[in-house]
Design a binder for these strands. Structure first.
Length: 231
DNA sequence: CTCTCGATGCGCT
DNA sequence: GCGCATCGAGAGA
């Protein structure tokens, strides 16, 4: 399925109104269950970013699951620390961290309060506010569908940084999660899902590094990078 | 297309 | 002090 909020994409007619993208706040129930299941459930849902500059809406097309201290690839592997404390909190919060000293990454905390688990948002497809996203990404950014093709690109396009760490994505007004709605009912992702090993976690050791906990919408143009064959 | 490398702040050992 | 859940530029095939 293709999601479009571009008014120009609709034939012009006198009584036609803008085919407004209708948004409904995400249900917390979607964030319950095993983190690798939640990571797949988040595919196709929307991130809404409202700032003074305007609204941006982006569709999640790629995720990675990170579990608790037992997961040697997870930031929770050393137990609860100042940086990862949000991961151990209630589901629905944003865990935002700085990586390589210059890039931010956004996670959606899931699982029960007190138990560390989070889903990294690895790539999004711009849906609304594409020009604003392009402005934030800078003049060297590629075509529109690549503006959110990576975890740090996603944060840059949506103006997400450490100040938003701990934000409640289920209730906040500036950064929140939504499900797309058509004809009054919630949309369901019908696209096939592809999986593969998580990116950049070789240090985690054989068991955890090869776990296929990276998920994407098969063949989507906004994926951060290709999935290995036979994923 | 692929590969290599530098930037850059800070959490953790 | 080491190394990172990354990106973009540049070189070479």
């Amino acid at each position: 399925m293709t999601l479009t909020a571009d008014p120009a994409g609709e034939p012009h007619s006198e009584r036609s109104t803008t085919p407004a993208l209708r948004l409904r706040r995400m249900d917390a129930a979607l964030l319950a269950g095993p983190v690798e299941a939640v990571a797949q459930s988040l595919l196709g849902t929307l991130i809404v970013r409202d700032t003074d500059a305007g609204r941006c809406v982006a569709r999640i097309v790629e995720t990675e699951a990170y579990a608790g201290p037992e997961d040697r690839a997870s930031h929770a592997r050393a137990g609860r620390t100042a940086r990862n404390r949000v991961m151990f909190g209630p589901p629905g919060r944003a865990y935002v961290y700085l990586v390589y000293g210059l890039h931010h990454c956004l996670n959606v905390v899931c699982g029960p309060d007190g138990q560390a688990a989070a889903v990294l948002i690895r790539a999004v497809e711009p849906v609304e506010g594409v020009e604003l996203m392009r402005l934030r990404r800078g003049p060297t950014a590629g075509p529109g569908h690549r503006l959110g093709a990576g975890p740090a690109r996603t944060c840059q396009a949506l103006d997400i940084d450490g100040a938003l760490d701990g934000t409640d994505l289920l209730t906040d007004l500036q950064l929140w999660l939504a499900a797309p709605i058509w004809s009054g009912s919630a949309a369901r992702l019908t696209d096939p899902i592809v999986s593969g090993p998580r990116v950049g976690v070789a240090y985690a050791g054989a068991g955890w590094a090869v776990l296929p906990w990276r998920f994407g919408i098969t063949g989507h143009a906004s994926l951060s990078r290709p999935f290995p064959r036979a994923g």
